[in-house]
Nucleic acid binder design. Sequence first.
DNA 1: ATGGGTACCTGTCTGC
DNA 2: TGCAGACAGGTACCCA
Length: 276
Amino acid sequence: MPELPEVEVTRLSFCDRIHGARVTGVRLGKPLRWPLGVPPDALVTRTVGEAARRGKYLWLPLEEAGQPAGGLLMHLGMSGSLAFSDAPGEAGTHDHFDLVTTRGTLRLTDPRRFGAVVWSPSRDDGMAAKLLAGLGLEPFDAAFDGAHLHAALRRRRVAIKLALLAGDIVVGAGNIYACEALFAAGIDPRTRSDRISRPRSERLAAAVRDTLGRALALGGSTLRDFRDAHGMEGRFQAQAQVYGRAGEPCRVCGTTIRRVVQGQRATFFCPHCQRR
DNA sequence: ATGGGTACCTGTCTGC
DNA sequence: TGCAGACAGGTACCCA
């Protein structure tokens, strides 16, 4: 489900409210991708710091007596969402993690359980460091530009769509936004990465930034069940040019949008507007 | 190193 | 109505 815009919208929707809260309890539901890695009660009395995002991961730092005391690395997987509320109510079948604090409860709901909540002694250590290692540049980082993208793509032969999804060149674009960014850049998703010219790399880097930025401004995409931590839906999906539109006419040229499969995942593109 | 495929898990939708 | 099969916003891990 959640790509960078959805994760960032989620972070922004609860960050201020939970900042400074003291943990009073932790409830675990069914197992997620990895075990928490610490006895849940060990987190009680710790204070929550400012939530940060790296790629599609969220980092919730904890403090004890004003000193850093580890934190929680969270991932929403394909179907996860976080809700923050004063009275969360009885945990349902898909509610697998509650962080109960003096200011409210942060609850992870995740039907497919591809998501994760993992304790780590710091961002740069333990499980967090392991999972964050190898992530590419943040799309809004000034270092992510056409030159950087072009240099990275020259070393790969995989299709450009798969290179974007891999997340080791640039993070944040998942299946929806990789398709949309390639449409915006006019590039056929099946094009070999090392065949993308420097000028097209410039356009693609700008398209990735622009697509993710617009989605963020619109509160992300709600295809079926994405909500921010206060239950708000995203509005980007109505602007999708290609994603989920197979068989429909391209909004620019009227050509029928095609669907192909790459790396076992659906790719949508306009065969006229997007060229190899 | 790169690339391809598999695995994890549940819900929803389609077609017979 | 039941049931099988395809599909879904992600990514770690294994093998060639």
